[in-house]
Design a protein around this nucleic acid. Structure first.
Lengths: 398, 398
DNA sequence: GCTATTTGTAGCGCGGTCGAACAAATTAGG
DNA sequence: CCTAATTTGTTCGACCGCGCTACAAATAGC
């Protein structure tokens, strides 16, 4: 306890914080010139040159001789995020397991999917994850010349403790108190990080999607339940234990119907995908089919239900506006279909329940990233770790 | 636009971030030894010595020869936050204006209060503020030898845009779109900052009160309305326009009664101080009187109402728990009386509506700081600015 | 008084960044 | 096609915050 490092204050002594800033910008822009880096960071040309060459030596970025050549003057060198530095996204769901390899430049390189006729337990899921990732890497070795895997990001549809890597509860998977990070990292030659699915979806929409560049974002994803993700000041809202942003379980009504956690009158209890399916005469259909049916086969019964759900959604969003004053609200999953059903009505209800000053500048979007959103979010989790401490990942290769 | 500084990335080139860290710790602990600073920051003795002497030269801290002397070894020098570096808190309310001088070590040095028989407009309020502050400084000059005033923090009971310094709307004061920062700083030889009353109360409780040291805090203050403040990750939740944490306007019920902003079923519409006063046969009494009457003269009518309000409060808090996963919830103003009325019932309802994982480690407190809370919060606003950039305040004196 | 312990102090070195001077690569214009 | 203007890359020297080491100083325990 004598040589312990500080944790309370923000900063200590910087071993080049600017290296992280530059790496982060290169990752964000995917390709950028050195002079643009100078403008964005305020650093001098000499400093940027040194930092970029350091990152290039580390293998995280590549330099090309020509950037854009439309201006007078010597053209600036282009800098690109490496395409052979990979993160693996791991997505266990009720009826499948999907792993994807995502490059540092945002490209999805390769993927594998295994279908499950029936749900499986967490321990067997870990077996399958290891097998799938090893298979994925085998495939890559056949095709690609060289690559490095930095880590794996596991997408958990439930409450996760990211710090310890424990899945607290994932009701749909029927997993409870499962130390997945520990189990996985013991069997894989890479770092393992875990995150909540909605939070990762939010992260992805901020990085490459509908909320790109926004730093105050509320994200709602509807599938079997309703998950939420919040970013404030550019940072994820984590809370004390790391379980924050359970936006589906916010009570907005005094009606009696419960959500799957037994709480009455919540968003999740009032806005239910299966109720929509039922009124449309559907069962277990994809989001696309649901949206088409909802928008094109409007019956009085379906319209009634959709409007009722839309109103509840708008009231909930109004609450989040009053609470967070976000710049961007992103509706994903079947919530985007609901929103498309009657945007005007949504905004009317929203306007009625939110304070005027907090509605200023608010933008409501539907999720842009489809099936790749979660994979990008999961890879982002790994890459953010890389960006924060590039030196930590020096010795990793494959 | 060529020599513009960066604003998007977090850091650029540090002009001693550690100076801020050390100054912040000295302010937080009020008195601390150099060796403790070493342990807390991880910096070496030589570095701490240099930083402290820099701060001492600046006049923000003073060094004493003896710290604690209970251990073996050479005693470490004590470092204290200066008692002659001041911030002025300015608190305009419906029926009074109060200004207080708060020292960098947290002590309230002096105060002045002016009563208003009837509400006044913002322009006349500015006149009174200038007069009151000048009078306050005159008083101080008579008594004290020497002091420096860094800035004034204005406590606004309404929506504020801290960045531009505009009061967007303060319904109780009947002020709307008033650029108070601009008007005040034109007439005062000091920086002027403004903030929302509930957010400042929250800040104060974190600095010296019930939520001391906690970095995930939800604060609710009940007076005529219900205001909220949120700190996450040790930082204030600001939102896009700076209007976040309007927690009183969160809808939790589908009943029809409106709050003062015309939104039905909100916390503020359901938990009303004046309803409590009415059922107790009181009118315009102080918080203390209200609490005494509420707790000691329990009738069936008052119990019914209090329980109804308590339930609404608990549901709202449960929502905030699900949203924020806070470590600490602080109830202030008449909400603390309501909480004391039946804590068990509150926690029962809370438990029913919040997710189990998010309740782990949660602490619910009543506000500790009485009338000085807001003044401390306002001064803290100024001192945080000082701590972030100590060099900015070098040339200021009085 | 002597020792062990802890802290203050002074000097040196390292690393990250800036700044200035010069070279290089492009566009614009004749 | 050649020149001027412009913008960037490159190199080198300097500064500064910070760590490290050695030594002095101040305490408790014996």
């Amino acid at each position: 306890m004598s040589k312990n490092r500080v944790d309370t204050p923000e900063l200590r002594t910087s071993s080049s914080a600017n290296l992280s800033v530059v790496l982060g910008l290169i990752h964000e822009y995917r390709t950028i010139t050195r002079s643009e880096l100078c403008q964005l960071t305020g650093l001098t040309r000499s400093t940027v040159a040194k930092l970029v060459s350091t990152l290039s030596d580390m293998g995280f970025v590549t330099e090309s001789r020509s950037g854009q050549i439309d201006r007078v003057g010597r053209p600036s060198h282009g800098v690109e995020a490496a395409d052979d530095v990979l993160a693996i996204s791991v997505h266990p769901e009720v009826d499948y397991l999907e792993v994807k390899a995502v490059a540092f430049n945002g490209q999805i390189v390769h993927s594998r999917k295994k279908l499950y006729p029936q749900p499986i337990g967490p321990d067997q899921a870990v077996d399958d994850m290891v097998e799938a990732i090893e298979g994925l890497l085998q495939d890559l070795k056949k095709h690609s010349l060289k690559f490095r895997v930095l880590g794996a990001g596991v997408i958990v549809p439930g409450q996760t403790d990211a710090a310890t890597g424990v899945v607290r509860q994932a009701p749909h998977l029927q997993w409870y108190e499962f130390p997945i990070k520990q189990k996985l990292s013991a069997r894989l030659p890479m770092r393992v990080l875990i995150g909540n699915d909605a939070s990762l979806g939010c992260k992805a929409e901020i990085t490459y999607g509908a909320a790109k560049g926004s730093s105050e974002v509320v994200y709602l994803h509807g599938s079997s339940g309703i998950g939420g993700g919040v970013y404030m000041g550019g940072k994820e809202l984590k809370g004390f234990g790391g379980y924050a942003s359970e936006l589906g379980h916010v009570r907005i009504s005094s009606v009696a119907s419960d959500d799957y956690s037994g709480i009455p009158g919540t968003l999740e209890a009032l806005v239910r995908r299966e109720d929509l399916e039922k009124v449309l005469g559907l069962s277990q259909v994809s989001d696309d089919v649901l949206e088409t049916e909802l928008l094109e086969n409007r019956t009085s019964a379906s319209t009634n239900l959709a409007k009722k759900q839309l109103e509840a959604l708008a009231v909930a969003v109004a609450n989040f506006v009053n609470i967070f004053n976000p710049e961007t609200v992103v509706l994903a999953g079947f919530l985007s279909s609901l929103y498309r059903f009657d945007q005007k009505y949504f905004h009317m209800v929203l306007k009625k329940h939110a304070l005027p000053a907090l509605l200023e500048g608010l933008q409501v979007f539907v999720g842009e990233l489809g099936s790749n959103a979660l994979a990008i979010g999961a890879s982002e989790m790994v890459f953010e770790d890389l960006i924060a401490e590039p030196t930590k990942y020096l010795k990793l290769g494959a």
